[in-house]
Computed example of a mutant assay.
Amino acid sequence: MANAADLRRLARSLEGTTEAPHFDRTAFKVKRIYVTLAADGKTANFKFTPDQQEFKCMLAPHAFQPVAGGWGRQGWTTGILSEMSVAELRKALEEAWQHALPKPLKR
């Protein structure tokens, strides 16, 4: 069972990640925000591609659900930390982090 401390530790271990307040949440970002942690530490919102979101929500509906409205249609997905193993949390963070990295310069 994962928790907020696991999320912080794993997110900070991803290269280039910074942590900062974001409204009533804590955001983790590289070039862009890829995950936010709720103030109560029970849930996190991950930025997945729509395909990743669909897969996660289908595979583990007890742990993942789209954020309501337009944010959810963009791939933002709420994860219930207590419903994930640490390995599942690590994979979710790595997937979200990949999309937040700066794009390589075209030559």
Rank of each mutant, 00 (worst) to 15 (best):
D51K: 07
E54G: 04
H62G: 14
N45Y: 06
T49D: 07
P66L: 10
Q52H: 02
D40S: 04
A63L: 05
A60F: 08
F46Q: 15
L59D: 14
A63E: 06
L59G: 03
A63K: 08
E54I: 04
V67E: 10
F55N: 11
D51I: 00
D40R: 04
D40C: 05
A44N: 00
Q53L: 03
P66T: 06
E54M: 04
K56S: 12
K42L: 14
K42R: 14
P61A: 11
M58Q: 01
P50C: 08
F55D: 15
F64R: 11
D40Q: 07
D51V: 05
D51W: 01
P61Q: 07
C57H: 03
F48M: 15
K47Y: 01
N45F: 05
V67D: 04
K42F: 00
Q53A: 08
T49Y: 01
P50F: 02
G41S: 10
G41D: 14
A68C: 04
A44Q: 01
K47I: 10
F46W: 04
A44K: 00
H62A: 10
A63Y: 08
A68P: 08
A68I: 10
K47C: 03
P61L: 11
M58W: 02
V67M: 14
C57W: 03
E54D: 12
Q65P: 01
P50E: 13
K47A: 09
V67L: 15
A68D: 14
N45V: 15
M58T: 12
F48Y: 12
F55T: 14
K42V: 09
A39D: 15
F46K: 09
C57D: 14
K42I: 03
A63R: 10
T49R: 00
D51N: 06
A44T: 00
H62I: 13
E54P: 00
F46P: 04
N45Q: 11
D51Q: 02
Q52G: 10
K56I: 02
C57N: 12
P66G: 10
T43A: 06
A39N: 11
A39I: 08
N45T: 02
L59M: 09
P50S: 06
A60E: 15
E54Q: 12
L59C: 03
A68N: 08
M58G: 09
K47N: 13
P61M: 08
P50N: 09
P50A: 08
Q52L: 13
F48G: 04
A60Q: 14
F48P: 12
T43G: 04
L59F: 05
K42W: 05
A39C: 08
A60M: 14
K47S: 03
F48W: 05
N45H: 06
K56V: 06
V67T: 13
P50Q: 10
P66D: 11
A39K: 13
F64Q: 07
Q65L: 09
M58K: 11
T43V: 11
P61I: 12
T49P: 03
C57F: 06
A44G: 06
P61T: 10
P66I: 06
Q53R: 14
F55H: 12
E54S: 09
A63M: 02
K47T: 00
V67F: 04
A39F: 05
G41C: 01
K47V: 03
P50Y: 05
T43D: 13
G41H: 07
A44I: 01
E54N: 06
T49A: 09
E54A: 13
Q52K: 07
N45A: 11
H62Q: 15
P66A: 09
Q65D: 11
Q52I: 05
F46Y: 02
D40P: 07
F55M: 08
D40M: 01
F48K: 02
P50W: 08
